[in-house]
């Protein structure tokens, strides 16, 4: 068994899932809505980068920054035009709105860029490899994934602990009405959460597209896995999500190596088993309802 390879690849893919899971978690943390449009929002932003790169011919970093800006605006747009106008919404109603947004974005993207697969390369190539210790080869792409997820996690940690906005977001999560009374404009907090989530999602999607293929469907499967990773990690804890993603990637790669036919569902089965024992995920605190 090529242990080292499976380990590195599993961790790298898992970090992508975890990173993308963060996008799901940030929105869930503020408004208890699972954003089913997260995958397609990220896909759309990646296509914007692709468009800038392929049609206008700008260098990668400009395209990437533009796609991140676009992702932020897209997040605000979805929140402002689709979620905010809903009066007295139920959580399920909001989820259906995000499903509608997902269909909308998928439709527009494949209308604009066509259904055919595209290649999208980033400066971190999967073909350039380094052998750190004998038998453990790591590609430039995997290295970039590790570094970027570590940076984003550190940033989020700092952000939620030490900035005004981060504190406001935590307050809004705990009690929306109390936060309002304390002078927090919760609407802005929601819009900001959507923008932040969308930007992180776009980063993850850009990394993933370089490993796989860019087409309007390319984030559907990763979204499911990211959502599952977030649930495994406990939905509330940010390091938990990355660890959940890592576990997910490792399970998929090791079980997938041993029983390739069952690769697509092993991770989900493991997650259900974990949830049977720990109903709020590995790192979530079990929330006890008070009467």
């Amino acid at each position: 068994m090529p242990f080292g390879h499976l380990l590195i690849e599993g961790l790298a893919m898992g970090a992508c899932y975890g990173l993308f899971g963060l996008a799901v978690v940030i929105i869930y943390k503020t408004s208890e809505v699972v954003n089913f449009a997260a995958g397609d929002m990220a896909m759309f932003s990646t296509f914007v980068a692709f468009h800038v790169l392929a049609v206008y011919g700008y260098p990668f970093w400009i395209a990437f920054v533009m796609s991140l800006v676009f992702a932020g605006l897209l997040g605000v747009f979805v929140e402002f035009f689709f979620l905010r106008p809903a009066k007295n919404p139920t959580i399920l109603g909001l989820i259906v709105i995000t499903i509608g947004a997902q269909l909308l974005l998928a439709g527009v993207a494949s209308w604009k860029w066509g259904a055919e697969q595209q290649a999208f390369s980033i400066p971190f190539s999967y073909q350039v490899t380094y052998e750190i210790i004998p038998g453990l080869v790591i590609s430039q792409w995997a290295l970039a994934v590790f570094i970027i997820s570590a940076v984003i996690m550190a940033f989020l940690y700092f952000f939620f602990k030490h900035t005004k906005m981060g504190t406001a977001m935590r307050a809004t999560q705990q009690n929306k009405h109390a936060a309002k009374i304390m002078g927090i404009r919760t609407n802005r907090v929601f819009a900001f959460a959507w923008a932040l989530s969308s930007v992180i999602g776009a980063t993850a999607a850009t990394l993933m597209s370089a490993k796989t293929i860019l087409d309007p469907q390319f984030m559907m499967e990763p979204f499911l896995r990211a959502f599952a990773a977030a649930v495994l990690g406990g939905l509330m804890s940010i390091p938990g999500v990355l660890i959940g993603g890592g576990i997910m990637g490792l399970i998929e790669n090791f079980f997938g190596y041993a029983w390739p036919a069952w690769k697509p569902i092993t991770a989900f089965v493991v997650i259900v088993l974990v949830l049977c024992i720990r109903p709020s995920g590995l790192f979530g605190k079990h929330y006890v309802k008070k009467v």
Binding site: V96, A101, L104, V108
Partner: peptide
């Protein structure tokens, strides 16, 4: 797209 818009 129409399906999504109607849902929303």
């Amino acid at each position: 797209i129409a399906l999504g818009l109607v849902m929303i």
